[in-house]
C-alpha cells in the first residue's frame, strides 16, 4: 500500500535538493557556454592541434556514458591531488573536499563537449555572406561575430542548448555517485529508513518533471523572443 504521508513529506525533501541541482547546472553552463563556443571556433577555423584535441575530447564525451565519466573523474582527481600535495608537502585532507567541486568539474567537462558540437553546427548554418557583409560595412571580425554572427547562431542553437540543459539537469541525478546531496540522493536517503522506495522515486520523478518542463517552457519563451527578426519573413 502506498504511504501517502511519506509521499508528501518526501516530496519536500526531494524539493530541497533542487537548489544544489540548479547550482551545479548553472555553474556547468557558465563554464561550458563560452568555452564550448571558443572551442567550436577552433574546430571551424581548423586551428592546428587544438581543433584535433577538441575533436577527440568531443568524441570521448559523446562516446562514453556520463556515469563512467563521473567514475573516472571522481577517482582520478584525488589521485592527482595526492601526488601534487605530496610533492609540495601540502597537508590538506583531500577527502574533505566538498563533492560539489567534483560535480562542477564533471558536468562542466561533459557539457562543454556537447556545446562544442551545438555551436559548431549552428555556426555552420550561418552563411559566409553575413561575415563578408559585416566586413564590408567596416566591422572588425570580432565586432562581426559579436553583433551579427553570434546573435544569429544563438537562435539556431537555442533548441539544442535547451536539450543540453535539460539533459544536464537530468544528469545531476547521477550526483549520488559523488555523494552530492541533490534531489535523487536526498529522497533516496529518506526512503532507506522504511523502504518506501516507490513513494520516494515517485517524488523524485515529479520534481524532475516540474523542473525540466519549466526549463523547457522558459527556453521556448526566450527562443520566441530571440527569433523575432525571423517573423517578418513568415
Amino acid at each position: 500500500m502506498m504511504n501517502y504521508q511519506f509521499l508528501v513529506e518526501t516530496f519536500f525533501v526531494a524539493l530541497s535538493g533542487v537548489p544544489i541541482a540548479l547550482l551545479v547546472t548553472v555553474v556547468a553552463l557558465l563554464v561550458a557556454l563560452p568555452l564550448g563556443f571558443l572551442l567550436a571556433l577552433t574546430r571551424i577555423n581548423k586551428i592546428p592541434v587544438i581543433h584535433h584535441l577538441a575533436k577527440i575530447y568531443v568524441s570521448f564525451v559523446r562516446g562514453t556514458p556520463i556515469i563512467i565519466q563521473i567514475f573516472i573523474i571522481y577517482s582520478s582527481i584525488p589521485l592527482i591531488l595526492k601526488m601534487v600535495f605530496e610533492k609540495y608537502h601540502i597537508t590538506y585532507d583531500i577527502y574533505k573536499i566538498n563533492p560539489i567541486w567534483y560535480a562542477f568539474i564533471v558536468f562542466a567537462f561533459s557539457t562543454t563537449a556537447i556545446l562544442i558540437e551545438v555551436f559548431r553546427s549552428a555556426l555552420g548554418t550561418i552563411e559566409k555572406g553575413q561575415l563578408e557583409a559585416a566586413h564590408a560595412v567596416g566591422l572588425t571580425t570580432f565586432q562581426a561575430y559579436r553583433r551579427i554572427i553570434i546573435p544569429q547562431a544563438l537562435v539556431v542553437a537555442m533548441p539544442n542548448i535547451c536539450t543540453a540543459t535539460v539533459n544536464l539537469i537530468k544528469a545531476t541525478s547521477l550526483g549520488y555517485a559523488m555523494s552530492l546531496p541533490e534531489i535523487t540522493l536526498k529522497a533516496k536517503v529518506a526512503a532507506n529508513v522504511g523502504y518506501n522506495y516507490v513513494e520516494a522515486y515517485l517524488d523524485i520523478f515529479i520534481v524532475y518533471l516540474i523542473l525540466c518542463s519549466t526549463v523547457e517552457y522558459l527556453f521556448k519563451r526566450y527562443e520566441q523572443h530571440l527569433s523575432k527578426y525571423k517573423v517578418a519573413n513568415a
Binding site: 547521477l174 522515486y201 515517485l202 524532475y208 518533471l209 518542463s213 523547457e216
Partner: peptide
C-alpha cells in the same frame, strides 16, 4: 514524450524496478 524527456534514466529505472 514530454514526461519521458524530463525523467532521468536512473529515476525511471528505479521507478520501474520498485513500481
Amino acid at each position: 514524450t514530454t514526461i519521458m524527456r524530463c525523467t532521468p534514466s536512473i529515476v525511471l529505472l528505479f521507478l520501474v524496478y520498485y513500481g
